[in-house]
Simulated assay, not measured.
Amino acid sequence: MSLVDDLKNAQKDAMRAKDKVRLGTIRMTLAAVKQREIDEQITLDDAAVLAVITKAVKQRQDAASQYDDANRPELAAKEREEIAVLETFLPQPLTDDEVAALIDNAITSTGAAGMQDMGKVMGVLKPQVQGRTDMGALSGKVKARLNP
């Protein structure tokens, strides 16, 4: 079953349960998926849907931190509730050891020798870790490995 089907089934379950936060979050996510499909005139596969969900989580994390800075805890709490809903559709996060092993494998397979090869390494890593780790933190770890 595809990720879009999972989202649609979760939407039906949320309607039945009258869970407004979950329903609203899933509807916004499905709308974002549909918008991207229309914009690019393609049907998204699971990896692309995962990218949409990951982007939505990041946007909500940024919004929550801004609400915290503005002393609006009720709005920050709402964003965190939506993050919790979206995270149920993401795969299990990778541990630090798993990330380190993937970085080592990517460096070895690309033959990376320095910072000029960072793009190659990230290109290999991105499909493996999409939605399972923070790409900014991953980029920092790869830089540290390539910069002796």
Rank of each mutant, 00 (worst) to 15 (best):
A17D: 06
A17N: 07
K18P: 01
K20Y: 10
K20H: 09
V21Y: 08
R22I: 04
L23H: 11
T25L: 00
T25I: 08
T25N: 03
I26L: 09
R27E: 06
R27G: 05
M28E: 13
M28Q: 12
T29M: 06
T29S: 10
L30G: 00
L30M: 02
A31G: 10
A32L: 08
V33T: 07
Q35N: 12
R36H: 13
E37M: 00
E37W: 01
I38W: 00
I38P: 00
I38Q: 12
D39W: 07
D39Y: 06
E40N: 13
Q41G: 08
I42N: 08
I42A: 14
T43H: 12
D45N: 13
D46C: 15
A47N: 13
A48W: 04
A48V: 01
V49Y: 02
L50I: 09
A51E: 10
A51I: 05
A51P: 04
I53K: 01
T54V: 10
T54A: 15
T54R: 11
K55V: 02
K58N: 11
K58R: 14
Q59A: 13
Q61A: 13
D62F: 04
D62I: 08
D62N: 09
D62Q: 05
A63P: 01
A63C: 06
Q66I: 13
D68C: 13
D68L: 15
